[in-house]
């Protein structure tokens, strides 16, 4: 499954942010979207998952036009999204946050196993299973957010700055989870301001500046120089 943005313009009211953006995920592996604060990365992924309707251009899922498909239907097709900022349902417990998503799974008997598997992937969550998500630490909340996305058993996982503002010990766990997912066949679209991990994990990258894709290329550590140059524009 690949997600593709074709000639996309998008913005908020009269403010145009994205300009003629073309970008595709890979069938598997990581595609990194890099760019400074305010470059339009979040706007790009919000358009991809359907929270924002492009004013021009198309969003394709495996070639099919899903530009006007509701976000929850995209989730059902295998597109999962972890938004920026460690978002969770604060008044629901950790377990309820996970059940909420598992509730959609069929057959019904699989639901408990999905929740258990998510807890196993992030053991830190087990200790806070009955605590309200609003009371978790930033790192725990982000792990919860990723766990929630994984319960939908996505074909493509979109992560918006998953390690931003998170304590270093948890950053390593989150990065390990991303690497592990990518190598086990889930495609990842990884938005990052910090190039290090993103480039190391990525098969391909795109650099965004002022709402335009200004540079693309193959990932890996050797791509650093090119990306640094694109980022200074």
């Amino acid at each position: 499954m690949t997600l593709e943005l074709v000639g996309v313009d998008a913005g908020y009211g009269r403010t145009q942010v994205l300009r003629d953006v073309n970008l595709a995920s890979e069938p598997e592996g990581v595609v990194a979207v890099l760019g400074h604060n305010g470059a339009g990365k979040t706007t790009l992924v919000r358009t991809a998952v359907g929270l924002l309707r492009p004013t021009r251009g198309q969003v394709l899922w495996d070639g099919e036009d899903i530009t006007s498909l509701a976000p929850h239907k995209r989730v059902a097709r295998g597109l999962a999204y972890v938004p920026q900022g460690q978002q969770s349902f604060g008044q629901l417990t950790t377990t309820e946050n996970l059940q909420l998503v598992a509730d959609r799974a069929r057959p019904r008997a699989r639901r408990a196993a999905l929740v258990d598997a998510a807890m196993e992937r992030f053991p830190a969550l087990t200790a806070v299973a009955t605590r309200k998500a609003g009371l978790l630490s930033g790192g725990q909340r982000q792990q919860l957010a990723i766990a929630r996305a994984l319960i939908t058993e996505p074909k493509l996982l979109v992560l918006d700055e998953p390690t931003e503002g998170i304590q270093p010990s948890v950053v390593a766990e989150i990065e390990a989870a991303v690497t592990d997912l990518a190598s086990s066949g889930t495609a990842v679209l990884l938005v990052e301001q910090h190039v290090g991990f993103a480039l190391a994990a990525a098969a391909r990258y795109a650099v965004l500046a002022s709402g335009r894709v200004v540079s693309t290329g193959a990932g890996g550590r050797e791509a650093h120089a090119g990306v640094r140059e694109a980022l200074t524009i």
Partner: peptide
């Protein structure tokens, strides 16, 4: 109940609920 969880989730954060696969409508 599952419905109750959905109702509370939609009240708490509509967009997050929608992108978690819940039909807010």
């Amino acid at each position: 109940t599952a419905l109750g969880r959905r109702i509370r989730a939609v009240v708490l954060n509509r967009q997050l609920a929608e992108t978690s696969g819940i039909s807010t409508r």
